[in-house]
Structure formats: structure tokens, C-alpha cells
Simulated scan of single mutants.
Amino acid sequence: MHLTQEWDKTFPKSDKVEHRKATFTNRYGIQLAADLYVPKNAATSGLPAIAISGPFGAVKEQASGLYAQTMAERGYVTVAFDPSYTGESGGEPRHISSGEINSEDFSAAVDFLGLQPNVDRNKIGAIGICGFGGMVLNAAAVDKRIKAVVTTSMYDMSRVMSKGYFDSMTPEQRNDALTAMSQQRWDDAEAGAPALSNQGLPSALSGEEPQFVADYFDYYKTPRGFHPRSINSNGSWTITSAFALMNMPLMRYVDEISPRPILLIAGENAHSRYFTDDVFDAAEEPKQKLILPGMVHVDLYDQLDKIPFERIDAFFGENLA
């Protein structure tokens, strides 16, 4: 695995933390690439730690790395990782997703953090952003080592893939989508590799897109958040990538995270807010929901004056003590 060693993040490097590249392997034998952030002059043992990933289609040089560096400034050992099949992480073919494997990626990050000599294994939490908010909740439901969970701008990727936005997909549309992906598998089998979708973000805006698409464009396609290894910035998923998510209910066991605490954060005007609202209703206590006035989905990717890091720090400070 070749890892880029120069600083190529979409955010400035902090002088308050130590940073190094790292790798670890998940339960499926896929090697993951990550950035490890450690507070400078921190204790040599007993530190709390946080595993971080997301958004869906992003890389560790974007939002998850910013969260990781910021939380490391606040005293946590953090790791931001590229999910399987994306960024600098391994896995072939590229640009595919799996609810199971991407959930496992969080558990592999917990494995890695728990092997660090300065980390207390009983003080490991996790943050999932956007689509990896759903993955981290799924991971926490089965992995009891994750002691506290935060999501921001959470997406349930299995729900949106299988039912459409706001559950608007009709049975006929679902059948058509599955039929098309099923037939695409013949083409991919004949070609020896999966074809990429043409449904990525546009190269330019026409002005007729939904506002949330324009918001995504403003993050992924401009200097604000563009990164060449990000699927959302510079590519697309495979045509059949949604296949595994069409019948995998990620939120099925979210109630089993209890008695470990959850903090769900979303913008008041986020198109994705209903995922957060519904998960909050389905989860058991202890749970908290923070709806941020006036904010949209992508505000919680990189806007340091809007992301409630004080609240996130207080949540982990209390629950990873």
C-alpha cells in the first residue's frame, strides 16, 4: 500500500497535535488507510479515543479528518479512516459500498485504537458523519466496545437506497431499480469489471438542481472541500454499488446500543434531518438529539463556527470518563 505522506488535507494542519499515517486490517482482510491524531504532550497511557469516518463517498482528508484533528486538540486520540474500497484503503474493485463491510471498518478502527499503548480500551467512542452515521450506529449495535456514539448529518444509506428520499420510491420503481442492477451484473461479468455510474455530482450546476445537490457541489467540487481521491469530488460509485444496501436494514438493532449513549446532531434545514429524527425515536435511552437552527446538511462537514464541538467534547468527556 502506497500512502501519501505530504499534508494533502482540505483543512490546515494543527500545531497542537501529532499526526501520522497508519494502516490496519478489517475482519475481511482489507487493509485500511488512516490518519492518527494524538494531542501533543499528552499522557502516555489511559487516554480516551475516537474512531471517525464519513461522509459517504468522502475520504479522510475531508470532513472526518477535520473532526479527528479537532477532537485530538481537545485531548482524544483519534483516527480518521478511508472506508474499504475507497481513498487510500484497499479492496477491489474500487468505488463500491457495503453496509456490512463499512460497519466492520469502524470495528477495525476500534481494534487499532485499542492496540495503541496510550489508549484506554474502555474509553473508545466513535463519530459517523452523513452516510457513515448509519454505519457507526450499525457497528455500535453489535460491537459493545464502542462506549459512546455521535452522528452528524446522519444518513441511513440502506433506507435512502431502498426507498428513495422521504420513502418516495414506489414498489414499481424499486423493482425497476433492482432489475436494472441485476441486468447490469451480466454486463459487468462480461467486461470483467463493474462499470461506473454516471450519477455522480455534475461538473457544473445548471441552477435547476435541488438545493441539497447545490450544497454538495459547493463542498465537494470547489476548493472548499474538493479532494482528488474522494468519490464525490472526482468520480462516481459503480452502477451496482447500491445492490447490497437495497435489502439491508442498517437501523434494525439501533435500540441495542443502549445502555451506551448516543448523541444525534443535525441541521434544522438539512434535507436529511428526518433520518436523525426517526433514529432518535427508535433508539432507547440514554439518547440525545441536537437540532441546530438554520443549518443545512453540509454545514456540519467543515464549518468550524457551526459544528458543536463543545457539545461533542462534553458528551464524550462524560461518557468516556
Results as ranks from 00 to 15, higher is better:
6 E>A: 13
11 F>L: 03
24 F>P: 05
30 I>G: 00
39 P>G: 12
44 T>M: 02
48 P>A: 14
52 I>D: 01
58 A>K: 02
59 V>G: 04
65 G>P: 06
66 L>M: 14
70 T>L: 04
73 E>M: 04
74 R>V: 10
93 P>W: 13
94 R>P: 02
95 H>Y: 11
96 I>E: 05
98 S>D: 13
99 G>A: 07
100 E>D: 13
102 N>L: 11
102 N>C: 02
106 F>Y: 15
107 S>G: 05
114 G>K: 08
125 G>W: 05
136 V>F: 02
145 R>Y: 08
152 T>R: 12
160 V>G: 00
166 F>C: 12
166 F>V: 15
167 D>R: 15
168 S>T: 13
172 E>T: 13
172 E>W: 08
173 Q>R: 13
175 N>R: 15
179 T>L: 14
183 Q>E: 15
184 Q>G: 02
185 R>A: 12
185 R>I: 15
188 D>V: 03
200 G>M: 06
200 G>E: 09
207 G>Y: 13
208 E>L: 06
209 E>V: 11
213 V>C: 00
214 A>V: 14
224 R>F: 08
227 H>E: 05
228 P>W: 04
232 N>A: 11
236 S>L: 02
236 S>I: 03
240 T>R: 14
244 A>Y: 08
257 I>D: 02
264 L>C: 06
266 A>Y: 01
272 S>M: 09
278 D>L: 11
285 E>C: 00
288 Q>A: 10
293 P>F: 05
293 P>A: 14
293 P>C: 07
298 V>Y: 07
302 D>S: 13
308 P>G: 03
309 F>S: 07
314 A>G: 06
317 G>Q: 11
317 G>Y: 06
318 E>H: 08
